[in-house]
Amino acid sequence: MFNVPYLLSFLSRTITLQRGDIISSGTLFGVGMGRNPQVWLKDGDVTEIAIENIGLLTTTYQAETD
């Protein structure tokens, strides 16, 4: 949806980006809908982002409650 130069420009308007900062932009809305069968994140799902020699970021998803 947005290219890398645009994302960097947009983000740098409000925060100071430092060497080594990571910008995780995800995927376009509806990617899971286009699969057969459809795939959606659900309560308890876990994603991991690993960068060699830096570390691992683990996120566990929790369903919204009203």
Score class of each variant (00 low, 15 high):
Met1Cys: 06
Phe2Cys: 04
Val4Cys: 11
Val4Gly: 06
Val4Phe: 08
Pro5Gln: 03
Pro5Thr: 02
Tyr6Asp: 11
Tyr6Gly: 01
Leu7Pro: 00
Leu7Ser: 01
Leu7Val: 12
Leu7Ile: 10
Leu8Cys: 07
Leu8Ala: 05
Ser9Pro: 00
Ser9Thr: 07
Ser9Met: 06
Phe10Pro: 00
Phe10Asn: 08
Leu11Cys: 07
Leu11Tyr: 11
Ser12Ile: 01
Ser12Gln: 10
Thr14Asn: 08
Ile15Asp: 04
Ile15Ala: 12
Ile15His: 14
Ile15Ser: 10
Ile15Cys: 14
Thr16Ser: 10
Thr16Cys: 06
Leu17Ser: 02
Leu17Phe: 00
Arg19Asp: 12
Gly20Met: 03
Gly20Thr: 05
Gly20Asn: 07
Ile23Gln: 03
Ile23Lys: 02
Ile23Met: 07
Ile23Cys: 10
Ser24Thr: 13
Ser24Leu: 15
Ser24His: 15
Gly26Glu: 10
Gly26Arg: 11
Thr27Ile: 14
Thr27Ala: 14
Phe29Val: 12
Phe29Ala: 13
Phe29Cys: 09
Gly30His: 05
Val31Gly: 01
Val31His: 03
Gly32Glu: 01
Gly32Leu: 01
Gly32Gln: 01
Met33Asn: 13
Met33His: 13
Met33Gly: 08
Met33Trp: 10
Met33Cys: 09
Gly34Asn: 13
Gly34Val: 12
Asn36Thr: 10
Asn36Leu: 11
Pro37Gly: 03
Pro37Asp: 06
Gln38Ser: 07
Gln38Phe: 02
Val39Trp: 06
Val39Gly: 03
Trp40Phe: 14
Trp40Val: 09
Trp40Thr: 07
Leu41Gly: 06
Leu41Cys: 03
Lys42Ala: 06
Lys42Trp: 04
Lys42Met: 04
Asp43Lys: 03
Asp43Met: 02
Gly44Phe: 03
Gly44Thr: 04
Asp45Tyr: 06
Asp45Trp: 05
Val46Asp: 03
Val46Phe: 02
Val46Pro: 00
Val46Tyr: 02
Thr47Cys: 14
Thr47Leu: 15
Glu48Asp: 06
Glu48Val: 11
Ala50Asp: 12
Ala50Phe: 10
Ile51Gln: 08
Ile51Arg: 10
Glu52His: 09
Glu52Ser: 13
Ile54Pro: 00
Ile54Leu: 13
Leu56Asn: 11
Leu56Pro: 00
Leu57Asp: 00
Leu57Pro: 00
Thr58Trp: 00
Thr58Gln: 12
Thr58Glu: 09
Thr59Ile: 15
Thr60Arg: 15
Thr60Pro: 00
Tyr61Cys: 10
Tyr61Phe: 15
Tyr61Gly: 04
Gln62His: 15
Ala63Phe: 05
Ala63Tyr: 07
Ala63Gly: 08
Ala63Arg: 15
Glu64Met: 15
Glu64Asp: 15
